[in-house]
Amino acid sequence: DAEFRHDSGYEVHHQKLVFFAEDVGSNKGAIIGLMVGGVVIA
């Protein structure tokens, strides 16, 4: 149960990062950079 909640939280966090990247611009380099930055921060 705890693992499921953790996975759901991660999924929401990931979707927010992707949405933010798409909102800023559909530049693949920027999106990839944001994703990598999110992984480093996390």
Rank of each mutant, 00 (worst) to 15 (best):
His6Asp: 08
Glu11Val: 11
Ile32Cys: 02
Gly33Ala: 01
Gly9Pro: 14
Val36Gln: 04
Glu22His: 15
Met35Ala: 01
Ser26Ala: 13
Ala42Trp: 02
Val40Ala: 03
Ile31Trp: 02
Ile32Gly: 01
Asp1Ser: 09
Glu11Lys: 11
Glu3Gly: 10
Glu11Asp: 13
Val40Tyr: 04
His6Arg: 09
Ala2Ser: 07
Lys28Gln: 06
His14Gly: 13
Phe19Val: 13
Gly29Met: 05
Val36Asn: 05
Gly38Thr: 08
Leu17Asn: 12
Val40Cys: 08
Val39Leu: 05
His6Phe: 09
Ile41Pro: 01
His14Phe: 05
Arg5Phe: 04
Ser8Arg: 11
Phe20Ala: 05
Lys28Val: 05
Asp1Phe: 10
Glu22Phe: 03
Leu34Tyr: 03
His13Ser: 10
Phe19Cys: 04
Ile31Pro: 01
Ala21Gly: 12
Met35Gln: 02
Asp1Gln: 13
Lys16Trp: 01
Ile31Phe: 06
Asn27Leu: 08
Ala2Gly: 12
Gly25Asn: 11
Ser26Tyr: 06
Met35Trp: 02
Val18Ser: 07
Gln15Pro: 15
Val36Tyr: 12
Gly37Lys: 01
Gly9Tyr: 08
Lys28Phe: 01
Gln15Asn: 13
Gly37Trp: 01
Ser26Glu: 09
Asn27Asp: 00
Ser8Gly: 12
Ser8Ala: 10
Lys16Ala: 06
Val36Pro: 01
Lys28Ser: 10
Gln15Val: 15
Asp1Lys: 12
Arg5Thr: 10
Asp7Tyr: 14
Glu11Leu: 04
Tyr10Gly: 11
His6Glu: 06
Ala2Cys: 06
Ile31Ala: 04
His14Ala: 13
Leu34Pro: 01
Asn27His: 07
Ile31Met: 06
Ala21Arg: 06
Phe19Ala: 05
Val36Ser: 04
His14Pro: 11
Val39Pro: 00
Val12Thr: 10
Phe20Asn: 10
Ala21Trp: 07
Leu34Ser: 04
Ser8His: 14
Gln15Asp: 07
Val39Cys: 04
Phe4Val: 08
Leu34Ala: 00
Ser8Gln: 13
Phe19His: 06
Gly9Ala: 11
Asp23Leu: 00
Gln15Phe: 06
Val18Asp: 13
Ser26Cys: 04
Gly33Met: 02
Glu11Met: 06
Phe19Leu: 15
Ala30Trp: 02
Arg5His: 06
Gln15Ile: 15
Leu34Ile: 14
Lys28Asp: 00
Glu22Ile: 04
Ala30Asn: 08
Val40Leu: 02
Gly37Tyr: 01
Asp23Met: 02
Ser8Asp: 09
Lys16Asp: 04
Leu17Ile: 14
Val18Pro: 14
Phe4Arg: 11
Val36Arg: 03
Ser26Gly: 08
Val40His: 03
Arg5Gln: 06
Asn27Gly: 00
Ala30Cys: 06
Gly25Ser: 11
Ser26Met: 08
Val12Leu: 14
Val24Asn: 10
Ala42Lys: 00
Gly29Leu: 05
Val12Asn: 12
Asp1Thr: 09
Asn27Met: 07
Gly25Glu: 06
Glu22Thr: 15
Gly29Asn: 06
Val24Cys: 06
Arg5Leu: 07
Ile31Asp: 02
Val12Trp: 12
Ala21Met: 14
His6Cys: 11
Phe4Leu: 07
Val18His: 09
Glu22Trp: 00
Phe19Tyr: 07
Gly29Val: 15
Ser8Pro: 06
Glu22Gly: 15
Ala2Asn: 13
Gly9Lys: 13
Asn27Ser: 04
Ile31Lys: 04
Ile31Gly: 03
Phe4Met: 07
Gly29Cys: 15
Val24Asp: 12
Lys28Arg: 07
Gly25Leu: 04
Ile41Val: 02
Arg5Lys: 09
Leu17Asp: 05
Phe4Pro: 10
Val36Cys: 13
Asn27Cys: 02
Met35Lys: 00
Asp7Glu: 09
Lys16Ile: 03
Ile32Thr: 00
Glu11Gln: 15
Phe20Val: 13
Glu11His: 15
Tyr10Val: 07
Val40Ile: 05
Val18Phe: 15
Asn27Arg: 00
Lys16Met: 05
Gly38Ser: 05
Asp23Pro: 15
Glu3Met: 05
Gly9Asn: 11
Gly33Ser: 02
Asp7His: 14
Val24Phe: 07
Ala2Pro: 07
Phe19Asn: 07
Ala30Ile: 15
Asp1Ala: 11
Lys16Tyr: 05
Gly25Ile: 10
His6Thr: 09
Gly9His: 12
Gln15Cys: 15
Val39His: 04
Ala42His: 02
Asp23Asn: 15
Val40Gln: 02
Ser8Glu: 08
His13Asn: 15
Phe19Pro: 06
Gly38Cys: 13
Ile41Tyr: 08
Leu17Val: 15
Lys28Ala: 11
Asp1Met: 15
Ser26Val: 13
Tyr10Gln: 11
Phe19Met: 13
Leu34Cys: 11
Gly38Val: 02
Glu11Ile: 09
Gly9Thr: 10
Tyr10Trp: 09
Glu11Phe: 10
His14Cys: 10
Val40Asp: 03
Tyr10Arg: 10
His13Asp: 06
Asn27Thr: 04
Phe4Trp: 06
Ala21Ile: 14
Ala30Val: 15
Leu34Phe: 03
Ala42Gly: 03
Val24Thr: 08
Met35Val: 08
Asp23Lys: 11
Gly37Ala: 04
Val40Lys: 01
Lys28Ile: 08
Val18Asn: 09
Asp1Asn: 13
Asp7Asn: 12
Ile41Arg: 02
His6Ser: 08
Phe4Gly: 13
Gly29Thr: 08
Glu11Thr: 15
His13Lys: 09
Asp7Phe: 11
Glu22Ser: 15
Ser26Phe: 07
Ala30Gly: 14
Gly38Arg: 01
Asp7Leu: 11
Asp23Trp: 04
Ser26Gln: 11
His6Pro: 13
Asn27Tyr: 12
